[in-house]
Simulated assay, not measured.
Amino acid sequence: MAQRPAPLCGILTPGNDEHIGRYEHVAALLVRCGAAVYGMGHVGHGESEGDRVLIGDFEDVVTGVHTVQEHARAHHPGVPVVVMIGHSMGGMIAARYVHRHGAVVAALRLSGP
């Protein structure tokens, strides 16, 4: 039996003083609904390298989100990419991402940006 393609690719971006592991329940729900889900650990957050909870330039983080988006798109060609945001700083990062790369995003979900 052939596997159905994912209806969408979701990218989770956590907020300040958070880590991607806090969104495992969100990712699990989306996967159960058939979505492909990707997440990233921001520099200095969770298990990522860097000074703890210190981001010197948010443009670098936005570039990191774009790298994840390119990876998702390469593994799921033709599938819409949705940037889904955890909370707070993640919302600001997503808003800036869409400002820079809006043409590649099918939808945006912000939570307490």
Rank of each mutant, 00 (worst) to 15 (best):
Cys33Glu: 15
Gly41Leu: 12
Gly78Ser: 13
Ala74Phe: 10
Val26Asp: 08
Val68Trp: 06
Ser88Trp: 12
Asp57Ile: 02
Phe58Leu: 15
Ala35Glu: 04
Ser88Arg: 06
Val61Ile: 14
Asp60Asn: 08
Gly41Ser: 15
Val68Tyr: 04
Gly34Gln: 10
Leu30Ser: 03
His76Gln: 11
Val43Trp: 11
Val61Arg: 02
Gly64Thr: 06
Ser48Asp: 10
Val65Arg: 01
Gly56Met: 12
Asp60Met: 06
Asp60Leu: 11
Pro77Lys: 09
Ala74Leu: 14
Gly21Gln: 10
Val26Thr: 05
His66Asp: 15
Gly56Trp: 13
Val62Leu: 09
Ser48Ala: 15
Ala35Gly: 03
Gly86Glu: 09
Val83Glu: 10
His76Arg: 09
His25Trp: 13
Val37Leu: 03
Glu49Leu: 09
His75Trp: 02
Pro80Val: 10
Ala27Gly: 10
Thr63Pro: 00
Arg73Leu: 07
Thr63Ser: 10
His76Lys: 08
Leu30Gly: 00
Glu59Leu: 08
Val31Trp: 03
Asp60Pro: 01
Met89Ile: 05
Asp57Trp: 01
Leu30Asn: 01
Arg22Leu: 14
Arg22Gln: 10
Gly90Ala: 05
Gly50Thr: 07
Ser88Thr: 07
His87Phe: 05
Ala36Ile: 07
Gly34Met: 10
Ile20Lys: 03
Val37Met: 01
Gln69Ser: 10
Val37Cys: 02
Gly34Ala: 08
Ala74Gly: 13
Asp57Thr: 02
Leu30Trp: 14
Glu49Lys: 08
Met89His: 02
Ala74His: 13
Ile55Leu: 14
Met89Thr: 05
Tyr23His: 02
Val31Ala: 10
Asp57Cys: 02
Ala72Lys: 05
Pro77Gly: 06
Asp57Glu: 05
His87Cys: 08
Ala28Asn: 14
Ala72Glu: 03
Gly86Ser: 09
Gly78Met: 13
His45Asn: 00
Ala27Asp: 11
Gly46Arg: 05
Glu70Ser: 11
Val62Ile: 15
Val53Glu: 07
Tyr23Asn: 01
Val68Met: 08
His76Gly: 06
Gly44Ser: 08
Leu54Arg: 04
Ala28Lys: 15
Glu24Asn: 08
Glu24Leu: 14
His25Ala: 14
Met40Ala: 03
Cys33Ile: 00
Phe58Asn: 09
Ser48Gln: 11
Gly90Phe: 04
Val61Asp: 06
Ala27Trp: 05
Asp57Leu: 03
His75Cys: 06
Gly64Trp: 09
Ser88Leu: 09
Phe58Met: 15
Arg32Glu: 15
Glu70Phe: 03
Tyr23Trp: 03
Ile85Asp: 12
Val82Ala: 13
Val26Ser: 04
Glu49Asn: 04
Tyr23Lys: 00
Ser88Ala: 11
Ala72Thr: 05
Val79Cys: 07
Met40Ser: 00
His87Gln: 12
His25Tyr: 14
Tyr23Arg: 00
Arg52Trp: 09
Val65Gln: 07
His42Pro: 00
His25Cys: 11
Ala72Trp: 04
Val31Cys: 08
Glu24Asp: 14
Val61His: 02
Glu70Trp: 02
Val81Thr: 12
Glu49Arg: 11
Val43Gly: 00
Ala72Ile: 08
Ala72Tyr: 05
Val83Asp: 05
Gly50Met: 13
